[in-house]
């Protein structure tokens, strides 16, 4: 929902083109530039509230966000550095921490790549052609957003676990999916499935098919058309999807927790290690890992904001 609303804010006919249930994507900030560009005529304007009420509303908003959102973030860094910088870096240099960082990067690389390819393919089929059931297909792609992370992990236990449908076969052939990297990657692919497709579909629908049709009629092959015409047009949207997909892949906890088995140094991703260390009262170590994830979140937010501006600028020449 949120991601889509933001991406297509400038196009009213697209904003509501399909109901979505994205319950986990970071939403882009709407086009503040436009709002800001309007002359501020607060004083005589019948469209605003008396001064004291304005102050109360602003104070409530700032207090709420500070207490519920900013403070937890500050706590992460304060706790991570509570025993000093040396303890912080010592915690990050632990073999267990390094193993978790490596595994997280590996799993994110796998799931982002897979979802990138799928996302582009799905977006091409959905946005460049007309067919019945399109809205339903988009709803299906969105499904992982509305499934509890724990259930996203559970389904793979039911498929590949010892009592699962493929469990006996896998055991007989000595293939390890659950409590191993493939299971963690599968669960992560599941939860991050919609991100890239969701970022591309509204963008590609808006761009239409004229440019591609022109390329084809001039003799370009399908792949040439995609790489020379479509890809340059969607590169920022694609990057946007990859960014959000990556953030979620690295930060996923519930789904991965169910399929990982928590084998120390082997199947613990960074979020899982945060949990383990916290439960062992190793607060500095736990928050040191958590601070890396928090930084990832902050960098993602900044990059997202920049990308949104790019996307907005890219839309302007189309007439807005």
């Amino acid at each position: 929902m949120s991601m889509q609303t933001g991406l297509v804010t400038s196009t009213p006919q697209l904003r509501t083109y399909a109901p979505t249930t994205d319950v986990s994507v970071a939403a882009p900030a709407p086009r503040l530039e436009i709002v800001r560009a309007e002359p501020v005529t607060a004083r005589r304007d019948p469209r605003t509230e008396p001064g004291p009420i304005r102050l109360v509303i602003i104070a409530l908003a700032i207090t709420f966000l500070s207490v519920f959102v900013v403070l937890p973030l500050v706590v992460v860094f304060a706790s991570a550095f509570s025993k000093g910088v040396v303890a912080y870096f010592a915690a990050l240099a632990e073999p267990e921490a390094l193993a978790a960082i490596k595994l997280t990067l590996l799993v994110a690389a796998i799931s982002v790549t897979v979802n990138l390819v799928f996302g582009v393919i799905a977006a091409w089929a959905i946005s460049k052609f007309e067919f019945t059931g399109k809205t339903f297909l988009i709803t299906l792609i969105d499904l992982p957003f509305s499934v509890s992370p724990v259930i996203s992990g559970l389904v793979f236990v039911l498929l590949f676990g010892a009592q699962g449908y493929f469990g006996p076969w896998l055991q007989a052939h000595n293939v390890h999916i659950l409590f191993a990297v493939p299971g963690i990657a599968l669960a992560t692919i599941f939860v991050t499935f919609p991100f890239v497709a969701r970022a591309l579909i509204p963008l590609m629908q808006e761009q239409g098919t004229q440019e591609e049709e022109a390329a084809i009629s001039l003799g370009a092959s399908g792949l040439q058309t995609f790489f020379r015409v479509t890809l340059p047009n969607i590169k920022w949207g694609l990057l946007y999807g990859v960014l959000l997909c990556n953030a979620r892949a690295m930060g996923e906890f519930g789904a991965v927790s169910v399929v990982s088995g928590h084998i120390r140094g082997e199947t613990n991703t960074m979020p899982l290690l945060v949990e383990i260390l916290y439960n062992e009262y190793q607060f500095v170590a736990s928050f040191a890992i958590a601070s890396l994830l928090a930084m990832l979140a902050l960098i993602t937010l900044v990059a997202k904001t920049i990308l949104e501006r790019r996307l907005d600028e890219a839309e302007v020449p189309d007439g807005d």
């Binding site: 970071a26 959102v69 916290y278 994830l293």
Partner: peptide, 20 residues
């Protein structure tokens, strides 16, 4: 503050959990 609104989306849930 507008950007801050997105933090609960972006922050991994385990991090939010231990922080809270």
């Amino acid at each position: 503050f507008d950007a801050i609104v997105d933090i609960p989306f972006a922050l991994p849930t385990a991090v939010a959990g231990v922080a809270l």
